[in-house]
Amino acid sequence: MEIKYSTAILIVNWGSYDYTRSCLISLSHCLNKDFQIIVIDNGSSDGSGQRLFDEFQQTCTFLFSDINLGFTGGNNLGIKWALERDFDFVLLLNNDTEVNPDFLTLMLEEFALNPKLGVVQSMILFMDEPNKIWSAGGKWIPSLGRAITLGDRVLLKDYVVQNKVLDWATGCCLLITRQTLEQVGMLNEQYFAYFEDVEWSLRCRDKGYEIALAEKAIIYHVAGGSSKKEHAEGMLSPRVFYFHVRNQFFLVRQQVKGLWKIAAISYHLLRFSAWAVYFTGRFRFKKLKSVLRGIIEGLSKPI
């Protein structure tokens, strides 16, 4: 089945020339050619945005931000650009991914099969272990305010999709319709990065749109390529832990109702207290401070 829709593919670059370049090259082999790639350079200070522009300006559109707007703000720049130009679909694609040539065709086919769909996610495998699943979509547990990744590290050959309908889709590879965007709105920029895709997905479902997995649409993900850099306290910066903790509490406060909210907050306080104990024992005091700051701001900041 050949689907003819215009798609804007958004790729946010933040100081990651090699990853973004590899992603763009893989997209050049796509069977479906009815798309436009928009590279959003998110305030890169290493010149990677200009290098990519010099190399790919003939085939990609480039948007430049003077500052790092995060995953949310960077993608929202691209979403706004795409909506102003009447694209039928917008695809969020992490820059540390590479795609199979038929991935977009297979994702679009899901919309033809189910008119209730607002969002489709691809099957995502690890780049360095392409037989293992990184994400087959997400499940939301309301009583705990917990987002679970389906298929995490399961061998692809052993994974059986019980239900293609998902609770949430990861922003690593998320295809959304123009109509859904117009009804639901853009990403919540207060999140900056982490859990913004869960919050967005749950908003889509609240508006009556379904989310599905395109299990045969395959892409490969480095997993944290743009956030894994050498730091004094390991590969992940303290800032990553801050956003993870803070946004988890944002999500609970927004999505969990009634007495379950108290239970969910207590559950995550226990989880993150364990993180704090671990970082204290490993003398990773910057990460400890980030976790504590995330807890305080996640529970107190207006949302």
Rank of each mutant, 00 (worst) to 15 (best):
V119I: 15
N114M: 01
C204E: 00
D152G: 01
F64A: 08
G70M: 04
G294W: 05
I141N: 11
V160F: 02
A136L: 04
S135Q: 03
D96G: 08
L117C: 02
V245C: 09
F103T: 12
G78A: 03
D158L: 08
H244V: 14
A223Y: 07
I124T: 14
N76A: 08
F53Q: 02
R253D: 01
Q248A: 14
F35I: 02
N163L: 02
G73T: 04
L104S: 02
G47I: 13
R282D: 04
L174F: 01
L113P: 03
D197I: 07
Y17H: 10
L31Q: 10
N100C: 07
G185S: 02
G78M: 03
Y5E: 09
L92H: 05
K257D: 04
H244L: 15
M107Q: 11
F103Q: 08
N114E: 07
I9A: 02
A169H: 13
W81N: 02
P101H: 02
F249R: 04
G258W: 03
D102P: 11
T59C: 14
T180E: 04
G298V: 12
Y242M: 01
S45N: 05
M235I: 15
I265V: 14
G74T: 06
N95E: 07
K287V: 05
V161I: 08
Q121K: 06
Y209I: 12
Y159F: 15
G208Q: 00
F272L: 03
L91H: 02
F250L: 06
R51M: 11
L292D: 01
H221L: 06
N114A: 10
F126H: 12
C60E: 01
A193C: 11
N163V: 00
E297H: 14
C172V: 15
T72G: 11
T105M: 12
R146L: 14
T105F: 05
D206I: 12
V161Y: 02
M127K: 15
